[in-house]
Design a protein around this nucleic acid. Structure first.
Lengths: 346, 346
DNA sequence: ATTGGCACTCAAGACATGCGAGTGCCAGGT
DNA sequence: ACCTGGCACTCGCATGTCTTGAGTGCCAAT
C-alpha cells in the first residue's frame, strides 16, 4: 500500500512534470521539495507508486511520469485549487463587464477563460428546455416569405425565415398569432413542443384559409423550439493547441476535428460528473470513447437563470489542473453572477 | 533568358514537387515527363531557372524546389485548371441543394469546398452595403426591453435586443415604426446609415414622449445596419491544417490564430486582385504582411444578388493550384447560381 | 544546342562510443 | 521497521565517423 509520503511524492511528480515537461527522477524530487529523506527512500516510494500504476517510467532508466490514473488521484485527492491573483480577477472583470445579450456575454466569457488558462475554452449554452416562451411574432416579408420570431424569458431570441407561399391579410395574421400565443406563451419550451406536436397531429376543427401555410408556420416555430433544446457551444483559443502541440503525443488533428464538430465535445461535457462544488475533470484515456485520449477537459457548472450549463477548458493531459480548475471555477462564478444581475435588471 | 522548354521544366518541377513533396532532380524529370532530351539538358535549363529565382536547391546537391516566385509564374502562365470529375460535381450539388436562408447556404458551401479540396475553406459574406432595407420591426418584450429587427432584400435578417427603459403603447410604437420605415425602407443600407446619423444629429422638431427611448431604438437600428456593412467569414476544415502540418515549415499556430481572428483573413482576401475570371491567388511570402508567409490563398469571386464577395481556400504554399483553382471556381459558380435562383423565387 | 562523362558535394543513414541520469537492490545504521 | 549510502546496471541521447547515393556543374565532343 502506498504511504502518506508516497502520495506527497506523487504530487511532487505531477507538479514537476507539468512544470518541466521532463520525466522526474528521485534526485530531482529531493532537490526541489523538502522531503527530509534521501533519494533512495523516494525511490522506494516511487517503486510502490509504480506498482499501483500511478506513475510509469518511459524507459528502464529514466525519471517517472504520472499515468492517467496518477493524474486522477492527484486531481481527486491531492490538488488544491490555486487561487487566482488579483490581477487575474481584474482581468476577468474587465473582460466580462459591460453587458450585452447572452451571445455577447458568452463570447466574452470564453475569451476571458482562454486568456486566463492559455487553453482552449468552451462554454456550453444553457439548456433552454425549461425556459418560458414570452413572445411569438410573425413578420410578413412579401413574396410569400414569413419571418417567425420566438423569444423566451432567458433573453434568447430566435428567428427563422420560412417560405409559406401565401400572402396573409392582417386579420389572418392576427388569428395565427393569437393561436400560437395561447399555445405557447408563458409555457416552458418543452411543453410548447409537445403542444405543437399535438396541434399538428390533430389540427383544430375549423378549417380556415391558408391551412397549408399556417402549418408551415407552426412547423417553423417547432423547429425553433427544437433549437432551444439543443445544446450549443462557444469556443475560443483553438490556436493554443498548436502552441502546445508537443504536449499531445499524437497529432492535434482529432482535437481540431472535435472542436469543429462540437457534438463530440457536447457529449463529453454532458457525461462528466461534477463534484459537490460543480467541478469536474475528465482525464486522458477517460476520453478515449470520444477519440480524445491525449487530452483532458476540466469543467465547472454555472447557473443561467435556473438553467444549468457548463464551462470548461480543453488541454493536454499534462496540464496544470490546480490553476485551470481555479480559473474555470472563478469564471463560472463570475458568469453566474453576471447572468443573475442581468436578470434582475429586466 | 529562360526558354519555352525552361518554362515547361518549371511546370514539371512544380507538379512533381507538389506530388511527391521531395525536391525534384533532373533525372526524375526526364523519367516522369517526355521531354525528349537528356538529363544534362534539363540541368542547363534548371540552372537558368535558378538564375531567375524561380527554383532553388535546398542543399548544394539535391533536387530543386519552386520558389514563391516560381509558384507565381506557374499559376499565372503555366497552370491549366484541372476540370472537376463528374463525381465531384455531383458532390457539390448534393451538398448545396436543398435551400435555406443565407447562413445555411454559406455553411453548406464552405463544407462542400473543404470536402472537395481537403483544405481550409473560407466564404466571405456578401457585403450588404448596397442591399435594400425591406422591413424594420419592433417587438416590445416587457421590462423595458425592445427587440429590433431589420430585414433586407438579400434575405438577411438581423435582430438586436436593447434595453430602452420605457414601456410604449401601441400608438407610440406605430409612430416609431412609421418613422423608421420612411427613413429606411426601400433604401440601401449605406444611405440608411447616413440618414440615421442625420436624424440623431438633428432630431425631428416635434418633441414626443419617450425621446430618450426612441433614440435608443434608433441607435440599435444603426448598429444593426453597421453590421450589414461589416464583412464576415464562414470557415470550415481547420483540422486539415493539422493533417498537412508538415507542409507548413513553421508552426501552424499563426494560421489557427488568423482563422480565429478572421479580421486578418478578411483583409487578405479583400486585397487580393482577381483576374478577368474572378480568380485570384496569393502565394507564400506575398502573405507576409499578414503573418502567413508559409501559406497560400486561392479565391474566386461570386455574386450574391448584386453584392460581390469571395470564396476561397487556405493551404500550404505547396498546394495543388490547378485543382484548387478549379474547385473554388466551380463552387463559386454553383453558389452564384443558387443565390440567383433563390432570388427569383422571392 | 545537346549530350555523355566525370569529379565533386552534401544530406541522410548506419554504426560505434562515451556520458550521465536514473534505477534496483542490498547491507548496514538508527 | 524504516532509512540510507553505495554500487552495479541499464538505456537514451549526443557525438563522431564512415559510407552511400542522388544530384549538381562543367567540359569536350557531336
Amino acid at each position: 500500500m502506498v504511504s502518506e509520503r508516497g502520495l506527497q511524492v506523487l504530487r511532487a511528480i505531477v507538479q514537476d512534470y507539468v512544470d518541466t515537461r521532463e520525466p522526474v527522477g528521485s534526485k530531482a524530487i529531493v532537490e526541489r521539495h523538502a522531503f527530509g529523506v534521501s533519494a533512495a527512500t523516494i525511490r522506494n516510494d516511487m517503486a510502490l507508486l509504480e506498482d499501483e500504476d500511478l506513475i510509469v517510467a518511459p524507459h528502464t532508466s529514466s525519471g517517472r511520469v504520472p499515468t492517467d490514473k496518477g493524474y486522477r488521484v492527484f486531481v481527486d485527492h491531492l490538488a488544491e485549487l490555486r487561487p487566482l491573483s488579483t490581477g487575474q480577477r481584474a482581468a476577468i472583470a474587465s473582460f466580462l463587464d459591460g453587458s450585452g445579450d447572452l451571445d455577447d456575454v458568452l463570447v466574452r466569457t470564453v475569451r476571458a477563460l482562454t486568456q486566463l488558462t492559455g487553453q482552449v475554452a468552451i462554454v456550453q449554452y444553457p439548456s433552454f428546455a425549461r425556459a418560458h416562451v414570452t413572445h411569438v411574432e410573425l413578420v410578413q416579408l412579401g413574396g410569400g416569405r414569413m419571418l417567425v420570431i420566438v423569444v423566451t424569458d432567458t433573453g434568447r431570441v430566435s428567428q427563422r425565415l420560412t417560405f409559406v407561399g401565401d400572402e396573409f391579410d392582417e386579420a389572418d395574421l392576427a388569428r395565427i398569432r393569437a393561436e400560437l400565443g395561447t399555445l405557447l406563451v408563458g409555457r416552458p419550451v418543452r411543453d410548447g413542443l409537445q403542444r405543437i406536436a399535438d396541434r399538428l397531429a390533430a389540427p383544430p376543427a375549423q378549417a380556415p384559409a391558408h391551412v397549408r401555410a399556417t402549418d408551415e408556420i407552426v412547423r417553423a416555430v417547432a423547429e425553433e423550439l427544437e433549437e432551444f433544446r439543443q445544446d450549443k457551444l462557444v469556443m475560443a483559443g483553438s490556436a493554443n493547441l498548436a502552441r502546445r502541440e508537443a504536449d499531445f503525443r499524437g497529432s492535434i488533428y482529432p482535437l481540431l476535428e472535435a472542436i469543429e464538430e462540437q457534438v463530440t465535445l457536447l457529449r463529453l461535457m454532458g457525461e462528466m460528473v461534477a463534484d459537490e462544488q460543480g467541478l469536474a475533470a475528465s482525464i486522458g484515456r477517460e476520453n478515449e470513447p470520444f477519440g480524445l485520449a491525449e487530452a483532458s477537459v476540466v469543467t465547472s457548472d454555472y447557473d443561467a437563470t435556473g438553467a444549468r450549463a457548463r464551462i470548461g477548458v480543453l488541454g493536454p493531459t499534462r496540464m496544470d489542473y490546480p490553476t485551470n480548475l481555479a480559473a474555470v471555477r472563478a469564471v463560472a462564478r463570475y458568469l453566474t453572477r453576471m447572468l443573475e444581475q442581468d436578470d434582475t435588471s429586466r
